[in-house]
Write a protein that binds this DNA or RNA. Structure first.
Lengths: 202, 202
DNA sequence: AGCTTTCTGTACCCGTCAGTACATTCGCTA
DNA sequence: TAGCGAATGTACTGACGGGTACAGAAAGCT
């Protein structure tokens, strides 16, 4: 985690520029479709910098990208993600997700697409991405548990299963968003997920 | 569609073997993670055959793979997919989907993963894959329309939206299946989707 | 049989790309 | 202002992978 070599403010800025720009490129074209030269070209840097800031090469850069995108997407869902304890909070959460993905420069989910692409090729990095998804899903589960504790959901509701269902709907919607080049599938998917949640109302 | 050069039975068998084996490899490692040499090695063929049967190269092979997998997955859902006109039919459809993906040699959806990987890199092939998904989704929509016509669903149900939601849940479940290496997310996702469908009951 | 077409195997070409080596410039501090 | 480490630029290398060329084996047809 801690960089082995110290970074000057200028260096930190360059590193951040690389990550932000590379995140965009990878979202648009995938890991396999984005070369280090592409990243260099679009950031005005060369291999020198790339390997200076990410000594582990492309793998380390991709890992940094995943962290970056995970933080970004979780931040976009705050503060509702932390306190999904009312029907209204879930609605607002849905709106924040839609707003975030609607404002992205490209369709699809940076995390989900990454996870899918890496799944069969790079198990260790895939596990890192998967951990981000688990964390994200954990927030949904915690919200469902709060709802149940507050008596809004039936006692026999299984928070794990329901969180899985809602999370799946979200990512499926994002996948369709990518293939259909429209935000509508995501909207429909989230509405469906909230309907499933509502069907467990006490 | 029709091959420009005629195939002998032996040739057809070889071609089929290549497609079936390549489909498995691509499902496991993705298009970018599977080289023509890999395919040659696992089918006992060489570049000679590959380009003999798929003159258009890797792109044409991938296209054939997509057709193959699309037929296979639709067949696995029959006959329920064609007549989703009762609650029971939907349940059986769900079971057939679970059974199919549970028996696959690897996790994930061959079509969905392909669509995601190709989306930003190969627009023309991505469109082909996307067409398969549209067709698939069309069956769900038709089923919902039948359910509504039969009075099982409320009149204000939007079949397009609901089909989108169910289809998204399915593919999100499959995506999670891939990252979590388990069938459970798919089961939860489908149960959630059917709950959303049920919430529109008349 | 003899010809033609399909089928199969191998060797090669060339572009791409991750990664390396190393030279140079910048910026801070003593 | 001298020196040191961080920051940057460029040229190179080696492996990989898609695609081509072409030669030989096999199978159908007359």
């Amino acid at each position: 985690m801690t960089p082995s070599t110290s970074l000057t403010p200028k260096g930190a800025a360059t590193r951040a520029r690389i990550v932000a720009e590379a995140a965009d490129l990878v979202l648009a074209r995938g890991v396999g479709g984005t070369s280090l030269d592409d990243i260099g070209a679009s950031t005005g840097t060369g291999k020198g910098q790339l390997f200076h800031y990410f000594p582990g090469g492309k793998g380390e850069l991709v890992s940094a990208l995943a962290d970056f995108q995970a933080e970004r997407v979780l931040d976009a869902q705050r503060p509702w993600l932390d306190t999904l304890d009312s029907w209204d909070a879930w609605e607002r959460w849905r709106d924040s997700v839609l707003a975030h993905y609607g404002s992205q420069p490209h369709w699809g989910c940076p995390i989900g697409a990454l996870a899918s692409e890496l799944a069969g090729r790079d198990p260790s990095h895939a596990a890192e991405v998967s951990a981000h998804m688990d964390r994200w899903r954990g927030y949904l589960r915690a919200g469902i548990e709060r709802m149940r504790a507050a008596g809004a959901l039936r006692d026999d509701t299984d928070p794990e299963q329901l969180a899985l269902a809602i999370f799946a709907a979200l990512h499926g919607g994002l996948l369709l968003t990518q293939t259909m080049q429209s935000i509508e599938p995501l909207r429909a998917a989230l509405d469906g997920a909230l309907a499933a949640l509502g069907s467990q109302a006490a």
